[in-house]
Design a binder for these strands. Structure first.
Lengths: 231, 231
DNA sequence: TGCACCTGTTTTGTCGACAATATGATGATC
DNA sequence: GATCATCATATTGTCGACAAAACAGGTGCA
């Protein structure tokens, strides 16, 4: 995955997040460093060390770490401290199991609740992605994929779904992608799957939309598992 | 719902939680008070006020409030403070949409991963519930329902699923049940549904287990909606 | 050698005080 | 009378210091 794609991804995912307090900024920075592996997976987070490194008080670090714990990016133990989560094949499988359930439901609800305008926008987005993919600019695929999934999830109009996925699981997904280095390909096939899902949503076919989304994520999981085993 | 059932519920849900730090205790207490309406839904949480009331420092209260925010029981705004979530028909519907997705997947995974012994235990549990329901001790139904769902979720062996549901959504579900006063009935029908789900799991029929669980939750949602509108 | 215990050090948990921001009331201006 | 600016108040954000708990190293004993 190119640096440009990473940047674009971040822009998409973080577009509505703005840091107000110092704790916000520290949280965002820490999250970025963990996801991108600057702080290694499985390593211990020392409050003192981080407070000197990021030039804020321990209270701010503690708040940031607590928020990281809510995204499941770190795990805290009382009187012991916090560790960055470890990446494992089992963890990846569990992550995709939850994605399948939640994003499947998101697609169903998107078919029910998205406005005609939102659907049209998403179709236009897909068209522009198609042009780029056709032109060989496949490095946009990662960002395009994220953009697509992001729109479906927000289209569900379900606050729980949105927050669990966007604030939580997606960062973990990205952490796996970046650190275990899976950029795809699966470009063209995934693109067709996106197209089919949007069509189902446009037809207001909830059942099909959910089924196609679940398959899409299942395929994606299988693809990643294959890479993990053979690569 | 009787006080006994409430107590039993809590025992089940909280059985593996033990308070280590002061923040733990305060968090549990605050969560209890919010779920049971001692602190009213939609009300503002003042850090100073709570710190005097619960006799701990503001830092402890802040940590507790942060954890409440991760369960979606309160919402924080920077430089403004935290409010207890408001209960609304829309919120209830969204909550059950997510439950349907997650617990459906949990049932599927339970059919895949639960050991024969765990399944046998669950069948025995259901038998004992059946005896009690038959004897007219229907006040155990609520606790029995919770116990059943809890076992399915943990049976999925999926840490994300477990934490999102057990640490998060279930408390919100309980908050709706307690404060909008829905104790059932639906006792006997729900019981049959439980039986069918366990049978599907015992047969290792993932597809059926998920479908039945989703219907079970959907029925439950419809039942509650009906109560909200007509009662 | 292996295990238990004690002790000094390090790290986390908790506290009270100060700084920065929002809130609400008061008054001025159109 | 309504709207906006200003200021006092109250609340949250941040900090540094102390208390309590875990950790590591060494010592004594079986």
């Amino acid at each position: 995955m190119s640096t440009l794609a990473i940047l674009r991804f971040y822009t998409v995912l973080v577009k509505n997040e703005q840091a107000i307090t110092n704790a916000d900024r520290t949280f965002f920075q820490l999250r970025k460093d963990i996801v991108e592996g600057v702080i290694p997976a499985g390593s211990k987070l020392s409050e003192m060390e981080l407070s000197t490194k990021y030039e804020v008080s321990r209270a701010v670090i503690r708040e940031a770490i607590n928020r990281l714990a809510t995204c499941h990016l770190v795990e805290r133990k009382a009187n012991v401290g916090a560790r960055v989560v470890a990446l494992s094949p089992e963890g990846l499988i569990q992550l995709y199991q939850v994605r399948e359930a939640l994003e499947g439901m998101a697609a169903r609800l998107a078919a029910r609740y998205m406005s005609d305008e939102e659907i049209a926008d998403m179709q236009a987005l897909l068209d522009s992605h198609f042009d780029k993919v056709k032109d060989g600019q496949s490095y946009y695929q990662e960002a395009g994929d994220v953009d697509f999934h992001y729109r479906i999830v927000t289209g569900s109009k379900n606050d729980h779904l949105i927050s669990v996925l966007v604030d939580g699981l997606y960062h973990l997904v990205r952490m796996y992608r970046v650190q275990l280095g899976m950029a795809g390909p699966r470009v063209s096939t995934a693109f067709d799957e996106h197209r089919h899902i949007v069509n189902a949503i446009a037809n207001r076919d909830e059942e099909l939309a959910e089924m196609l989304m679940r398959r899409h994520i299942l395929y994606s999981k299988n693809n990643i598992e294959k890479k993990l085993n053979h690569g």
